[in-house]
Amino acid sequence: MSSDEPETRPRQTIHDSTAPSTDTRDSRIGEGVDDRFNSKLREAFGASPFILTKFDEFMNWVRGNSMFMLQFGIACCSIEMIHTYAIKHDVDRYGAGVPRASPRQADVMIVPGTIVSKFGPRMKRVYDQMPEPKFVVGMGSCTISGGPFQEGYNVVKGAEEIIPIDIHVPGCPPRPEALIYGILKLQERIQNGESSPVVVKPYELEQFGDLPEDELVQKLADEIDEDDLVMRYNWADSP
């Protein structure tokens, strides 16, 4: 039967004609004028399809909505951080879900755990490697004060002793919901163009030769090179 009336076969009509098939489009648009490109937004703006804004504000808005996190696992909190990235909590919903393995590609560093003396200089180095502008979320009580290990001989009493921190998320560990809240708060701050408060950071990387001469420095003099970078911890002054 079909061989009798070849022109009724669907493929055939397309094949034989050079005109574009518009069936799908027609059925989508329906009757009347095609106003698909007139979005609600455009209607609101009226005839001019332009938005006037300050460039800074625009950049802040962009930054806040596309944060590249640094993949940075330190201690127990990092497990909850992974849970925040993973299924169920899925922080990608907020445009912040692609952990970058290299600090040079990251905007935001979540510090998830206890900082000890040996790791302090390394964390500082990783932070320095991130391009500006950069933001830091301190996750867990360890990054606030040293947390449960505050009295430890080897534990830095809070990450803020070494790098500036924008948002503190308390908890041990904070639940993923709490971390998401922290990230949203950070987005809000970035969008408003607020940066972290200036804090006094007692621990900095310095060249060994620049340290004030004291008993300890004299003792270490033959072990450490003059221009090696070092960090000096003054435990007695720690909170």
Binding site: Y153, L216, V217, V230, R232
Partner: peptide, 26 residues
């Protein structure tokens, strides 16, 4: 466990936790 340049042995008697320490990046 501790950095090479650490002074003293923390779990021994008479260790003074308040003393400053220098840690290298090298």
């Amino acid at each position: 466990l501790l950095p090479e340049t650490w002074q003293g042995h923390p779990l021994s008697k008479g260790y003074d936790q308040e003393k400053p320490q220098v840690v290298t990046l090298s």
